[in-house]
């Protein structure tokens, strides 16, 4: 009888481990999502679809991809309907909290020119935080009540932060943390999942049909779709933040909108903003 010596057995074990590694490595590489590769493909799709639209323009949504809408827009921009929101936002931004601290104390660079880095993955919570979430956290940490994240004063503050970030390209970071990658992937899942009684996904309306007319609207391309937030919409008659827009789109598909601060919406915004890395902020925006 030949029994392998301990040495041989060790060699055998090594061989088995190597074989296993070789067998599983390529499969793993295939399964693992790579956001950067996905972002390049995503952007290439839109650059090919709209060869005449400059990269810097994508944040202007319908106006970037439709000539007649663009004329209308130029007229509207003579008296931008978000001006009142900027006025209100600046007054609020400069006003100290009861404890003497200010919004500026809660943000990098005193909150100037940082909008393009939101949403962010926060290691301490293991979750994604949106710009509006950061504003509300700032308030709560300073003893103030949180604001309605959809509209009103929150939209005005977001407008101020966007204004100081105009021209800065989206620079969303996915840190080397499996929870951050998982958040990105959940956002991606949301974007591509068919939902609501109509059984359509965000992608169903904002990928291939971008630029086409849906009822009175021209569908915005998914690329840069967060860059103009917050927006004044004539059909709302008021300002709305990103989350107001996402809930409205959920509602359109006859899906019951989630809570405004639901983690799924935050992850969705994380994914969408990451896909727009390199597209400059143009907000606040105005829409028909």
């Amino acid at each position: 009888m030949i029994t392998p010596s301990p040495r041989d057995r060790f060699a055998l074990a090594r061989y088995v481990v190597c074989a296993l590694l070789l067998a599983t490595a390529p499969a793993k590489a295939e399964d693992k999502i790579d956001p950067e590769t996905e972002r390049k493909a995503f952007q290439a799709f839109f650059f090919a679809k709209f060869p005449k639209v400059a990269k810097e323009e994508f944040g202007n949504g319908p106006y970037a991809v439709n000539e007649s809408m663009r004329k209308q827009w130029k007229e509207m921009m003579e008296f931008p309907p978000y001006e009142f929101a900027l006025d209100e936002g600046h007054a609020e931004w400069d006003k100290p909290f009861a404890n003497g601290r200010r919004y500026a104390d809660c943000f990098d660079n005193k909150g100037q020119g940082v909008r393009q880095t939101y949403p962010r993955f926060i290691a301490a919570t293991g979750q994604v935080e949106t710009l509006e979430g950061a504003i509300n956290r700032c308030r709560v940490e300073n003893g103030e009540k949180p604001l309605d994240p959809m509209t009103g004063l929150m939209a005005s503050l977001a407008a101020v932060m966007s204004e100081s970030s105009q021209g800065k390209p989206f620079a969303i970071v996915i840190p080397d943390d499996p929870r951050a990658l998982a958040a990105y992937e959940r956002g991606e899942e949301f974007f591509y999942s068919r939902k609501g009684q109509l059984g359509v996904s965000c992608a169903s309306c904002h990928m291939s049909p971008a630029g086409e007319r849906m009822r009175g609207d021209i569908l915005a391309p998914a690329l840069g779709i967060m860059a103009a937030m917050p927006i004044y919409r004539s059909d709302w008659g008021s300002m709305g933040t990103s989350i107001r827009r996402l809930s409205t789109c959920s509602f359109m598909t006859r899906a019951q909108p989630l809570k405004a601060d639901d983690e799924d919406y935050r992850d969705l915004e994380y994914f969408l903003s990451y896909m727009s890395n390199g597209i400059p902020i143009v907000g606040p925006g105005t829409r028909p």
Binding site: K195, G196, Q197, F251, R254, A255, Q256, D264
Partner: peptide, 11 residues
Amino acid sequence: LAAKAAWTTTE
């Protein structure tokens, strides 16, 4: 609702 899958028409 728990599956975050609810439809407005059901409601």
